[in-house]
């Protein structure tokens, strides 16, 4: 009886997203395919446009790096797996590939590019890791056997403490 009473007065429990994983083959449109799968998988969270935009941007940069640097040859269609788990402190995302390791065995710090320069010297690249480090939390990279594993947390859809 007590349980039934509590159910009546308790607010609707926050929707919990079951962990999911998707795998794409590296290639020209691999990033778009993975992002589409990710946003579809996250649909039950009803994230607002800004949150989805942040997730898409961070994940686009992380996945672009894999397509361009881990699997640099055009014919290389190695697997890229994206796993997503929703926890109290946000979305925990792990990206695993079997390409080349990160050059220094660690994720770049992601320094901001200097834009106070002459127009013709304006940087056209090097923003990717800055955006990842700026928008994501707990960014960790590791090489395990022949796999790269990048983990990060996105502080979205955070559940309010009871």
């Amino acid at each position: 009886m007590t349980g039934a009473h509590m159910n009546e007065s308790a607010p609707t429990p926050p929707q919990v997203l079951a962990p999911f994983q998707l795998t794409v083959k590296s290639g020209e449109f691999a990033v778009r395919e993975a992002l589409a799968g990710l946003t579809t998988g996250l649909a039950p969270l009803s994230l607002d446009v800004e949150e989805i935009g942040t997730i898409e941007l961070v994940m686009a940069e992380a996945l672009n790096n894999i397509v361009e640097h881990a699997y640099p040859e055009e014919y290389n269609d190695g697997p890229i797996a994206v796993g997503c788990t929703h926890k109290a402190d946000g979305l925990h995302i792990a990206v695993v590939d079997r390409g080349l390791p990160m050059p220094n065995g660690q994720a770049p710090i992601g320094m901001a590019q200097d834009v106070d320069v002459d127009l013709m010297d304006m940087p056209e690249g090097g923003f990717g890791w800055f955006l990842i480090q700026n928008l994501a939390k707990d960014v960790r990279y590791g090489r395990f056997g022949d796999e790269n594993r990048l983990e990060l947390r996105l502080a979205v859809a955070i559940r309010r403490p009871r």
């Binding site: 935009g53 686009a60 940069e61 672009n64 304006m122 940087p123 056209e124 690249g125 990717g128 955006l131």
Partner: peptide, 11 residues
């Protein structure tokens, strides 16, 4: 949507 590659292309 633009990513850093799109930004670079605009620059």
């Amino acid at each position: 949507f633009i990513d850093s590659s799109g930004l670079g292309a605009i620059v």
